[in-house]
């Protein structure tokens, strides 16, 4: 083992350990690490956006290329800051409504194509156990969500019950994967501490 002298790795290791102190209980070391992270992330995002997007757009597009219509977009964006002027805060609704309008249009334009393909893909040939399970699962789960059908009817109720089991199995699978993912996160940090910080190479 050879402990690193790289200050960057030391910084990572100290911050990682500081965050994990929360597992014992909430404490000032964890709070410091949390606030340092938030501050760094916010600043990094601001500086990165400014130098990689805002500044080149203004200098290149408007300044050099003379695409002055982008000034309108900048003005629209700046209107959002009227939120800080209570008497004129209504003006901030214009960029928001523009954004909501774009979002709605985007969803209507791009999302159905993705869903429709998935719906089409659910029409499978019943020639294997997997396909039969998919077919039964889709049918029963849909019945479960038909709240207008009387579940007291033994046929409908039975099919809905099977649908409920499918949902529970799916949720269980999602939960299991989430737990494993969290462990993977920890493993990533543990690997960093052991291999990069403590220098274990074995």
């Amino acid at each position: 083992m050879h402990i690193t002298s790289d200050p960057g790795i030391w910084c990572q290791a100290i911050c990682t350990l500081a965050v994990y102190t929360y597992l014992y209980k909430d404490n000032p070391i964890f709070r410091i690490a949390e606030n340092v992270f938030l501050g760094l992330a916010t600043t990094y995002w601001f500086v990165y956006s400014f130098f990689n997007y805002i500044k080149p757009a203004i200098v290149e597009w408007i300044g050099t290329n003379g695409q002055y219509h982008y000034v309108l977009a900048i003005i629209l964006g700046l209107l959002i800051f009227f939120r800080y002027v209570p008497s004129l805060s209504w003006i901030a609704r214009y960029p928001m409504s523009f954004w909501v309008g774009y979002g709605t249009g985007y969803t209507l334009a791009f999302t159905p194509a993705v869903w429709l393909n998935q719906i089409t893909a659910s029409f499978v040939a019943l020639n294997s156990l997997q396909n039969i399970l998919i077919f039964v699962g889709i049918l029963c789960t849909l019945v479960y969500f038909f709240f207008t059908l009387a579940k007291e009817n033994p046929v409908v109720g039975g099919i809905a019950e099977v649908g409920k089991w499918y949902i529970m199995i799916a949720l269980g699978s999602a939960f299991g994967n989430t737990v494993l993912y969290r462990w993977n996160l920890f493993l990533g940090r543990a690997n960093m501490l052991i291999t990069q910080w403590l220098g274990y190479t074995g």
Binding site: Q118, A121, A170, S173, A174, N177, T178, L180, Y181, N184
Partner: peptide, 10 residues
């Protein structure tokens, strides 16, 4: 990532 595998499998 592991967490999103069931969603993405579709």
């Amino acid at each position: 990532i592991q967490m999103s595998v069931p969603d993405s499998m579709t």
